[in-house]
């Protein structure tokens, strides 16, 4: 491949990394806006929705252009294929960030039911996974993603623990229903972002090694069997 390919190829990778940074920042700031009732921060996150969509389109256009013009193979092909998937996952993460910021706006002026600890902690776990996936993509090194299955399990368990905690509050005091229903929704969004980080892991693993892996397939299989019921509940039955 010539210099032009190398240049456009490097630009594509940079575009994915930029999108990754913005999506992760949106997710992180959305949860901080929720925790601190910070409407300004929520507005900032919501304002970035269009930018994420534009980045998604730009990456797709650039990747398709490279595939069409240069017909890359081996590592180049795997990297471009990976970029084409990462932009989708990152767009979803960004959109979940925007959705959480909308929750912040919906709960404007309302005091939290209790000190918000679990959701920010869950967000930290998820953003760490996203950052590690982006690091792996940038440095062509999968070592930081080896424990993603366990880390995703932690995120999933947190989601159900938040669900049960919120359920208790709602049963105790119906006036908390709106807030708790929103917390449950936010936990669900964060859990989906963790799943997206796992999907990113799979694609980056393929990019680096050429081998396809499935992260956390046991969880997927169990949940599918149960029609979406939480795995932990299944174990408890």
């Amino acid at each position: 491949m010539g210099e032009r390919f190398e240049q456009e190829f490097e630009e594509l990778k940079t575009m994915v990394l930029d999108m990754g940074k913005l999506s992760t920042e949106m997710l992180d700031k959305s949860v901080r806006s929720l925790k601190n009732n910070d409407m300004e921060l929520a507005d900032w996150v919501i304002s970035k929705k269009g930018e994420i969509a534009r980045m998604d389109d730009d990456i797709e256009t650039r990747a398709l252009r490279l595939l069409t013009l240069y017909q890359p193979v081996a590592t180049d092909m795997r990297t471009i294929a990976c970029c084409l998937k990462l932009n989708t996952y990152l767009a979803r993460v960004g959109r979940y960030g925007k959705d959480i910021a909308c929750v912040t706006k919906a709960l404007k002026g309302k005091k939290h039911v209790s000190k918000l600890v679990s959701l920010p902690y869950m967000a930290k776990l998820v953003t760490d996974m996203l950052n590690d996936a982006l690091y792996s993509f940038e440095h062509f090194d999968v070592s930081k993603m080896e424990d993603f299955s366990e880390r995703d399990d932690d995120v999933d368990h947190l989601r159900w623990s938040i669900f049960r905690e919120c359920l208790s509050y709602m049963m105790e005091e119906p006036k908390y229903i709106k807030q708790c229903a929103n917390y449950i929704m936010v936990a669900r969004y964060l859990e989906r972002c963790g799943d997206n980080a796992c999907k990113m892991n799979e694609k980056i693993h393929y990019m680096v090694t050429g081998v396809r892996v499935e992260v956390d397939k046991d969880y997927t299989a169990e949940c599918c069997e149960d029609g979406g019921e939480p795995c932990q509940n299944k174990q408890e039955q």
């Binding site: 890359p72 081996a74 795997r78 050429g210 081998v211």
Partner: peptide
Amino acid sequence: IFERPKKRLTEKYISGR
């Protein structure tokens, strides 16, 4: 060969390097 060549030289050649 085209998805996951074993040798670095093969990869460099098929990638046009």
